[in-house]
Amino acid sequence: MLDQYAVFGNPIAHSKSPQIHTWFAQQTNQQLEYSAILAPEDDFEASAKSFFASGGLGANVTVPFKLDALVFADTLSPRARRAGAVNTLQKGKNNQIYGDNTDGVGLVRDLTNNLGFSLADKKVLLVGAGGAARGVIEPLLNAGVAQLKIANRTPEKAQQLVKIFHGLQPETQLTSGNWASLEANQFDLIINATSSSLAGDLPPLPDHLFTQQSLAYDLMYSQQATPFMLWAKQQGATQVADGLGMLVEQAAEAFFLWRQVRPKTKLVLERLRPKQD
């Protein structure tokens, strides 16, 4: 039997992960099978236990189970613990389940390797303070940004994240606020980590937030430009991107964790992108 891997989610039929990991396996000559598993919203644990008990070696975890996976894992990577969410599971020695979070690494790799955007000394605005935002803060700090501001409708949630990640990179200015606190600020990179694009909406951001050479990045991926991306273009962002590259890069990090082989992500992105145009 081939080595078994899977992605857990609800819904899950739309997931690109089986295709991505199948291409990774073909490219790297790895003998494995990767499937999509629809887990009950109220019983992720039973589905995950069944998968690993039947020989599963690793899994990706998507909405709404990243917190359930955090609880399910026996041990956690430091970045998963700080992120407060797990998107990658691996069966280790003595059948112990190891939990990791590859989302933030995936974002940084997409920004730097695929989009050619250097994060060093940049002013970054992270919009939203939920799980998606929390998963990308540490890698952004480690990439050497000069400033990282977390803005949220309720500033208390953003301030809580500042407390969690304060001190990881003392040279980075890490602050928080609400929408009004963004007036008269300009950023080199604005990341939309809210779920607004799923509903076809836009966070109530003020105008004139972008610097001369700026990038707008929506963590959601879509066949069309999201409302946030369209707004950013109108506001003068030099570059706009959705989260497809992040999806592929976080998958590659998980694949490397499982197989100790790093696939070439650009080849996979080139195969996925035409489907989006």
Results as ranks from 00 to 15, higher is better:
Val63Cys: 12
Asp277Glu: 13
Gly92Asp: 01
Gly92Met: 07
Gln90Asn: 00
Gln26Tyr: 13
Leu247Glu: 01
Ala59Pro: 07
Arg109Phe: 13
Gln235Ile: 03
Met229Lys: 14
Gly167Ile: 13
Ser197Leu: 15
Ala80Arg: 02
Gly116Trp: 12
Asn185Glu: 14
Gly245Thr: 15
Gln26Lys: 10
Ile150Phe: 15
Asp218Lys: 04
Asn152Met: 03
Leu209His: 06
Ala13Asn: 04
Pro263Ser: 06
Arg79Asn: 15
Ala158Ser: 15
Pro11Ser: 06
Gly128Phe: 10
Ser35Cys: 01
Leu70Thr: 05
Ser35His: 07
Gly131Lys: 02
Leu126Glu: 09
Leu119Asn: 00
Asn185Leu: 08
Lys16Pro: 07
Val86Cys: 11
Pro227Gln: 10
Ala129Met: 10
Leu168Lys: 12
Gly106Asp: 07
His14Tyr: 02
Ile190Gln: 01
Pro18Ala: 01
Pro263Cys: 09
Leu174Asp: 04
Thr112Arg: 14
Lys264Ile: 07
Asn10Tyr: 11
Arg153Lys: 05
Phe187Trp: 13
Pro206Phe: 15
Val63Asp: 14
Pro18Asp: 11
Ser214Gln: 12
Gln159Glu: 04
Arg271Met: 02
Gln159Ile: 07
Met229Asn: 02
Pro139Asn: 13
Ser77His: 11
Val127Phe: 08
Phe255Asn: 11
Ala193Phe: 10
Ala252Asn: 03
Ala251Lys: 05
Glu249Gly: 00
Phe117Arg: 04
Pro78Leu: 09
Val127Asp: 14
Leu247His: 13
Met220Gly: 12
Ala180Phe: 03
Leu202Thr: 10
Gly243Thr: 00
Leu57Thr: 05
Arg82Thr: 03
Leu57Phe: 15
Leu174Asn: 02
Lys91Thr: 07
Val63Ile: 09
Ala216Phe: 00
Ala180Asp: 01
Pro227Glu: 14
Asn10Gln: 02
Ala120Pro: 08
Ala120Gly: 15
Leu2Asp: 03
Ala85Gln: 02
Asn192Arg: 11
Leu161Met: 06
Ser195Asn: 08
Gly177Asn: 00
Gln223Ser: 05
Lys275Gln: 08
Ala146Lys: 08
Ala232Ile: 09
Ser214Phe: 11
Ala251Ile: 03
Pro18Gln: 13
Thr194Gly: 08
Ile191Arg: 00
Val268Thr: 06
Pro204Gly: 07
Ser35Asp: 11
Val86Ile: 00
Gln213Phe: 06
Val136Phe: 10
Val71Met: 08
Asp3Leu: 08
Ser50Pro: 10
Pro11Glu: 11
Pro206Met: 10
Val105Arg: 03
Thr28Arg: 04
Pro155Cys: 05
Val136Ser: 06
Pro139His: 08
Lys66Asn: 06
Phe44Glu: 15
Asn114Asp: 12
Lys49Gly: 14
Ala199Asp: 11
Lys122Gly: 14
Phe255Cys: 12
Tyr34Thr: 05
Lys66Ile: 01
Val240Arg: 03
Val7Asn: 12
Ile164Phe: 14
Pro204Tyr: 02
Ala25Trp: 07
Asn60Trp: 07
Leu230Ala: 04
Leu76Glu: 08
Ile20Ser: 02
Asp121Gly: 15
Asp121Leu: 14
Ser176Thr: 01
Ala232Tyr: 01
Ala241Val: 11
Arg81Lys: 10
Gln169Glu: 10
Asn142Glu: 09
Ala39Asp: 12
Phe52Arg: 00
Ala216Cys: 13
Gly131Tyr: 09
Asn152Trp: 01
Leu247Gly: 06
Met1Val: 07
Ile97Met: 00
Asp188Ala: 15
Phe228Asn: 02
Gln234Pro: 06
Asn10Cys: 05
Pro203Arg: 01
